[in-house]
Design a protein around this nucleic acid. Sequence first.
DNA 1: ATTAGACCCTGATCGC
DNA 2: TGCGATCAGGGTCTAA
Length: 281
Amino acid sequence: MPELPEVETVRRGLLPAMEGVRIARAEVNRPDLRWPLPERMADRLTGARVVQLRRRSKYILADLDTGESLLIHLGMSGRMLVSGAMLGGFHLDHPAPQKHDHVVLHMEGGARVTFNDARRFGAMDLVRTDREAAHWLLAGLGPEPFGNDFHENYLVTRLKGRATPIKAALLDQRIIAGLGNIYVSEVLFRAGIDPRRQAGRIAAKRVAEMVPIIRTVLTEAIEAGGSSLRDHRQADGELGYFQHAFRVYDREDEPCIHCGAPIRRIVQSGRSSFFCPTCQR
DNA sequence: ATTAGACCCTGATCGC
DNA sequence: TGCGATCAGGGTCTAA
């Protein structure tokens, strides 16, 4: 599901339908997702205008003119789909309601934004915009990969002394926000680092080299509309296509693009890691 | 303080 | 066509 590039792709797709537009009616079809939805959520959304649509890590934040922000997390299987709007010269008709359409925002002017999430690992909450940074889901997040707080010295310092595998360290949202299982594998391949290496035992120079690689991989993925393996859809329903550019992820037993050795899959803390045993040390 | 594993939930896929 | 096992891009919580 959605890592930073997928969430950013969704945010960009939602912009024309949501930013500057008033929510005419909010339809909330169940009391909870991963956690209970906020009190009186439909009432607090109805009539509010979306002032700005932002992203923090894997969260989308819709700032409202009520002083609150709608915080959205897509979990593993969450989608945000726009319908009934003009997009790129095409009109997106309203599709028939689907199973797991948990929240529907009926926008002024006729567009709809539907949050669908089969597995319900996603989340929504309403938070005072001026206290957003203290929200329990956001407070512990590490720096944005594209932000000024994320740089070579920062990463070297944060990984110093850590015995945990570098794979787990890069997945840790408190260290860096936004990476997930796909892009960590892709980053470590490009950096030539074995995912099992202890984070604190990698030479500082090689840790530093990961910083621009992280930014490059994420940028390329955003430009491709994210990766669509199973669940991810852009806001207009289109598939992303970065999965065609994977060098190791989901390529078990296929040849390494550099050396031809078969790509290996191992399981680390319950998640698959893909890597080339020859090129990554 | 760290770290591995269970858990949350549904659906797709694969082997039999 | 059916059935069980396995797996999935998220994160939190517990127990070692």
